[in-house]
Simulated scan of single mutants.
Amino acid sequence: MTTVVSSKGQVVLPAQLRELDHIQPGQQFDIERVEEGQYLLKRQVSENEGLVDWLLSCPDKGWFTEVESESTDTL
């Protein structure tokens, strides 16, 4: 795949790659110079990546049962 560097130094990831890897606007990347003319681009992993999907996959309302515990105030 080929892309172009803009006058501002920006590189556009082709739509096909963005769709394949579910890349969204605002996601951050690390770039490393391997050697002259070769660069490694890695998407930074968010600590909360997948959290919303996990929460949405939880069972119906009422599945959570609170467990009684002592307060740290009494220690």
Rank of each mutant, 00 (worst) to 15 (best):
L20Q: 15
E32H: 01
G26M: 10
E32G: 03
E36C: 08
L20D: 13
S46H: 13
L41V: 15
E36I: 09
V34R: 01
G37Q: 05
G50W: 02
N48C: 12
F29T: 04
E19Y: 07
I23V: 09
N48S: 14
L40Q: 11
Y39E: 07
P14W: 04
I23D: 00
Q27W: 13
E49Y: 04
L40G: 07
Y39Q: 02
Y39N: 06
W54N: 04
E35K: 03
L41A: 12
E32S: 03
Q24E: 15
Q16V: 12
K42V: 02
Q16N: 15
A15R: 13
L41N: 11
V45C: 08
I23C: 02
K42L: 08
Q24I: 12
L51N: 02
P14I: 05
F29K: 01
D30E: 04
E19P: 09
L40W: 05
S46K: 13
F29N: 03
L51G: 00
E49R: 06
Q16R: 14
I23N: 01
V45K: 06
Q24F: 09
V34D: 02
R18P: 09
E19F: 06
V52E: 11
E47Q: 14
L51C: 02
Q44C: 06
P25N: 12
Q27K: 14
P14S: 10
L17R: 11
G26A: 13
E35D: 02
L51R: 05
E19M: 11
R33M: 01
E47R: 15
L41Y: 10
G26W: 14
P25F: 06
V52P: 00
F29E: 04
E19K: 11
K42G: 05
I23T: 02
K42A: 05
Q16S: 15
E36W: 09
L20N: 13
G26D: 13
E32N: 00
Q28L: 14
D53S: 03
L41T: 11
Q38H: 15
G26C: 13
R43I: 13
R18A: 07
Q38M: 11
E47M: 14
L40N: 09
Q44V: 08
K42F: 05
W54G: 02
V52K: 07
I23A: 00
L55T: 05
L41Q: 10
R33Q: 02
R18N: 10
Q28S: 08
I23H: 03
E47P: 15
Y39G: 06
L20T: 13
L51S: 01
D53E: 06
G50E: 02
Q44I: 05
L20H: 12
Q16C: 12
I23P: 02
G37R: 01
E47L: 15
L41D: 11
H22Q: 09
N48Q: 14
E47V: 14
Q24G: 10
R18S: 07
I31W: 02
K42Y: 09
P25C: 08
P14H: 08
